[in-house]
Design a protein around this nucleic acid. Structure first.
Ligand SMILES: Nc1ncnc2c1ncn2[C@@H]1O[C@H](COP(=O)(O)OP(=O)(O)OP(=O)(O)O)[C@@H](O)[C@H]1O
Length: 702
DNA sequence: GTCAATAATTTTTTT
DNA sequence: AATTATTGAC
C-alpha cells in the first residue's frame, strides 16, 4: 500500500483537503483538467487504504464503463489487496446489479431482458398498430423520445400532461408500452434507473440494505446526472450521508437526455452542511488553450463561475483551418497531422455528428493513415450480432417476445407474419407468452403441418439451450446455438462478400464471449448479455493503438490528447441548428465546444468548410459563431488552396498571371471577382471556373 | 411466404 | 448517398 505521505504528495493542497475530508457531503466543483477524476480515485484509495473503510461499503459511479475500468486500475495501483467487492461502475450498471437482486419487489424476475432503443421502437410500433394509430400522424421515434423524456423526469403515464389529441395518444401508447415491457419481463434503459428509484423509495427494507451498505458514495461527472440518478444518490446516501460528488457545470452536455445541470447547482441547498472544494489549477492544457476555452464559455450565463489558471507554458496558438468543403477539410487535417511528425496516438479528431466521420475516414484511408472510429454503427447493432443475442435472450427470458419475433424466421424457416399472428392470437386467448404458445403448438388448430414442423425444430433448439444455460459458459452456449440453428451455414451458402463479413462478425461475437469468460466471475450467458446491453462505443476504444482516433465530442468527455482537431465548426452543425431557438440549448452547444477545446494538452486545430454536402447536394456553410468568441490574437489562420479570396489578396490566374482582387460579389457557388492584373487591365472572373491560386510571397507587387 | 424493385426518409449528441 | 419501408410479382 502506498504510504499516506506518498499518496498525498501527488496532490495539491486543495485536492488534499478534498481527498482527506473526514465525513459528510463534499462537492468538488472545478473546471476542466483540474484533477477532479484524480481526486476521486485518490479519495477511494484513501478511504480503503487509510481509513479502514471496506471496499464493499463503497459505491463509486463513473460516466462510462471505460472510465470505471480506468478508475479501478488507478485505485488498484494505489492500493494493494482485494478491491473486488467495491461497487464501481455506471449508474446503469449499478442499477442492473440492484435489480437483478431485488427487482422482484417491483415486478421483474431476475432474468429480465434489457431493451435497447431499437427494441423499444419495435414494441411501440406494435402497440401503435394495435391502437390503430398511423405512423404518419404519430411518429414512433418522436413518441419514444417523449416517453424517454418523461421517464427521465420520473413522470409516469398517469402524470403525463395531456393538452391535446396528440398528447392524449402519447399517454395511451406510454401506458400500453409499460404494460408490454412488464409482460415481456423487460426494461428499457430509462427503466433501469426508474425502477431502482421505485424500489428504493417504495420498499424501506430494501433501501435500508443498500443505504446501510454504502457508507461512502462517490459520483464523477455529477453535472450530467438526471432526475432519476439524482434521486438514487439521495436515497442511497440517506443513511450515512457520505456523498462525494465531483463535476463542472461548464461541462454539462447531456441535457438532451434529461441531465439536469441544477443537480450540481443546487447541491449546496440539498446538503447545507456540504464541504465545497474548488480546484482552479489546470494541469492539462497550455495557457493559451485555457484562455481560448475560458473566453468562449464566459459567454454563458448562470454559471457557478470559476477562474482556471495554469503553470504550464503558454504554448502555440490555435490554428484555424478554413477549407473549401469537407473533403478539403479532411485533407488539410491530414497534412497538419503529417507535418507535426508526432505519434498517431497523440491525435484525436472530434466532430459534432457521427456522419462527419466519413469523408475524414476516406481521406485517411487514401493517405494510408491508420485510424480508429469510436461510435457510429456499433458492433452490437449489426443484424447478425443482434440475431444471435436475441436467441440468447429468449433462452434466458422466454417471455422476451421482442427477441422471439426477431429470430423466429432468421435463419429462414418459412414462418411469416401470418403464422406469428396466429400464435399471438392463441397466446392472447390463453393468457400466455408467445414462446409458450410455441411450446403448446400442438393445441393450435389451423396451423399447417409444415409450419408446425418448423416451429418444433425452433422449439427444440431453444429448449436444448435452456437445459444447459446454467452449466455452460456464455461462449459455449452461444456457439452451440449457432450450430444448432445453422446460422453460419445459411450465410455460407450465400457466398457473397456481404455474407462473409457477417460470418466474421458472428465469430467476433463468439470471441468476445470467450474473452468475457476469462474476465468475469459470472461466466454465464446472463452476465454476458448484461455486459453487451450496457456496452458502448467508447468502452471498446483502445487508446494505446498507434492510430488517429475519430470520435464525437460527446464521446471525448473526460479524455485528454496532446493534439485535438475540432472539425465542422460551422453554424448549423456546431452549434447544431436544432439549438438555435433555445438559448439554453445553444449554451449547451457552447459547453460542448468548451469540452472539446479543453481535451487538448498542447495544441488545438479548429476547422470549418465553406461548403458541405447535406442530403445529397452541396450546401453553403458559414463559420461557427463560437469562433468569434475566441480572441483573434490567439489564432493563426490557414487557408485552403481552394480558398475563397479576400479583397486585396494577390492571386495567380493560370493564363493571365498575377493579379490583385479588387472586388468580390455573389455567394455560395456563384462568386465573381474583379481582378487587376500586373499588366494593368481589369477582368471579371467566376471563381469556380477561373482556377485561381493564392500567389506566393515573391509575386507580391504594389 | 419470399424476393426484388421502388418509394420514402434521413443527420444531433447516448447511458 | 444510403439506408429502410412499402409495394407488387411470383
Ligand atoms: N496535483 C496534480 N499534479 C500533477 N498533475 C495533476 C494533478 N492533478 C491532476 N493532474 C493531471 O491533470 C490532468 C487532468 O486530470 P483529471 O483528468 O483528473 O481532471 P478532470 O478535472 O477530471 O478533467 P476534466 O473535467 O476536464 O475531464 C491529468 O493528466 C492528471 O494526471
Amino acid at each position: 500500500m502506498k504510504e499516506l505521505q506518498k499518496l498525498l504528495a501527488d496532490l495539491n493542497p486543495e485536492q488534499r483537503v478534498a481527498v482527506t475530508w473526514p465525513e459528510g457531503p463534499v462537492l468538488i466543483l472545478a473546471g476542466a483538467g483540474s484533477g477532479k477524476t484524480r481526486v476521486l480515485a485518490y479519495r477511494i484509495a484513501y478511504l480503503i487504504g487509510h481509513k479502514g473503510v471496506k471496499p464493499q461499503n463503497v459505491l463509486a459511479v463513473t460516466f462510462t464503463n471505460k472510465a470505471a475500468e480506468e478508475m479501478a486500475q488507478r485505485v488498484q495501483n494505489l492500493l494493494e489487496g482485494e478491491m473486488k467487492p467495491l461497487w464501481l461502475g455506471t449508474f446503469h450498471s449499478a442499477c442492473v446489479r440492484i435489480l437483478r437482486r431485488d427487482g422482484e419487489y417491483v415486478g421483474y424476475a431476475r432474468n429480465f431482458s434489457i431493451f435497447d432503443e431499437t427494441d423499444s421502437l419495435s414494441i411501440l410500433k406494435e402497440i401503435m398498430k394495435e391502437l390503430k394509430l398511423s405512423e404518419r400522424e404519430y411518429n414512433p421515434k418522436a413518441i419514444r423520445s417523449r416517453i424517454s423524456g418523461a421517464k427521465n423526469a420520473l413522470v409516469g403515464p398517469e402524470g403525463y400532461p395531456v393538452s391535446n389529441r396528440y398528447t392524449e395518444q402519447v399517454v395511451r401508447v406510454y401506458a400500453a408500452y409499460n404494460a408490454r415491457l412488464r409482460q415481456y419481463n423487460g426494461l428499457d434503459f430509462d427503466d433501469l434507473l426508474l425502477k431502482v428509484v421505485e424500489l428504493l423509495s417504495g420498499y424501506e427494507n430494501v433501501k435500508d440494505i443498500y443505504s446501510d451498505r454504502f457508507r461512502h458514495i462517490l459520483v464523477d461527472e455529477y453535472q450530467d446526472t438526471n432526475r432519476a440518478q439524482y434521486l438514487i444518490v439521495q436515497l442511497l446516501s440517506s443513511k450515512h450521508r457520505n456523498i462525494f460528488v465531483v463535476g463542472d457545470d461548464d461541462q454539462s452536455i447531456y441535457g438532451f437526455r434529461g441531465a439536469d445541470i441544477n443537480n450540481i447547482l443546487d447541491f449546496e441547498k440539498d446538503f447545507p452542511d456540504v464541504k465545497t472544494v474548488r480546484l482552479e489549477q489546470n494541469y492539462r492544457s497550455t495557457r493559451l488553450i485555457l484562455n481560448a476555452a475560458s473566453s468562449v464559455v464566459r459567454n454563458n450565463v448562470g454559471r457557478m463561475g470559476k477562474e482556471l489558471w495554469t503553470e504550464n507554458e503558454e504554448g502555440e496558438k490555435l490554428v484555424l483551418i478554413e477549407a473549401a468543403d469537407e473533403e478539403d477539410e479532411a485533407m488539410m487535417i491530414c497534412e497538419n497531422l503529417f507535418r507535426s511528425g508526432r505519434n498517431l496516438r497523440d491525435f484525436v479528431i472530434l466532430y459534432r455528428t457521427n456522419a462527419q466521420s466519413r469523408p475524414i475516414e476516406e481521406t485517411m484511408r487514401r493517405a494510408g493513415l491508420p485510424y480508429i472510429v469510436v461510435g457510429g454503427m456499433r458492433f452490437y447493432e449489426r443484424k447478425e450480432v443482434k440475431d444471435i443475442i436475441a436467441y440468447m435472450r429468449l433462452v434466458v427470458n422466454p417471455k422476451d417476445s421482442v427477441s422471439l419475433k426477431r429470430i423466429v424466421n432468421s435463419p429462414k424457416r418459412g414462418i411469416g407474419p401470418a403464422v406469428v399472428g396466429r400464435l399471438e392470437r392463441f397466446a392472447g386467448e390463453q393468457g400466455i407468452s408467445l414462446y409458450e404458445s410455441i411450446l403448446r403448438i400442438e393445441e393450435i388448430e389451423e396451423i399447417q403441418e409444415r409450419y408446425m414442423n418448423a416451429l418444433r425444430g425452433f422449439r427444440n433448439v431453444i429448449e436444448k439451450a435452456k437445459a444447459s444455460v446454467d452449466e455452460l459458459g456464455a461462449a459455449e452456449l452461444m456457439s452451440q446455438m449457432i450450430d444448432d440453428v445453422g446460422y453460419i451455414r445459411e450465410l455460407e451458402q450465400e457466398r457473397t462478400r456481404e455474407a462473409g463479413s457477417r460470418i466474421e462478425n458472428v465469430r467476433e461475437l463468439l470471441s468476445s464471449a470467450v474473452s468475457y469468460e476469462e474476465r468475469a466471475t459470472d461466466r454465464s450467458i446472463r452476465g454476458f448479455l448484461t455486459e453487451v446491453s450496457l456496452f458502448t462505443a467508447i468502452d471498446g476504444w483502445n487508446e494505446k493503438q498507434e492510430a488517429v482516433t475519430l470520435m464525437t465530442v460527446h464521446n471525448a468527455k473526460g479524455l485528454e490528447f496532446p493534439v485535438v482537431f475540432i472539425s465542422g465548426l460551422e453554424d448549423g452543425l456546431f452549434p447544431h441548428s436544432s439549438s438555435f431557438e433555445s438559448p439554453s440549448e445553444l449554451e449547451e452547444e457552447r459547453r460542448l465546444f468548451y469540452v472539446s477545446m479543453t481535451r487538448a494538452k498542447e495544441k488545438v486545430y479548429l476547422s470549418h468548410a465553406r461548403e458541405r454536402t447535406r442530403f445529397g447536394g452541396p450546401m453553403p456553410s458559414f463559420p461557427s459563431r463560437f469562433l468569434k468568441e475566441i480572441p483573434e490574437d490567439l489564432i493563426d489562420t490557414e487557408k485552403s488552396k481552394f480558398s475563397q479570396f479576400d479583397v486585396g489578396d494577390i492571386v495567380r490566374h493560370p493564363d493571365w498571371g498575377v493579379a490583385k482582387v479588387l472586388r468580390l460579389e455573389g455567394d455560395g457557388d456563384d462568386v465573381r471577382a474583379v481582378l487587376r492584373f500586373e499588366a494593368g487591365f481589369e477582368k471579371l472572373v467566376m471563381l469556380k471556373y477561373a482556377g485561381l491560386t493564392r500567389a506566393s510571397k515573391e509575386d507580391q507587387w504594389g
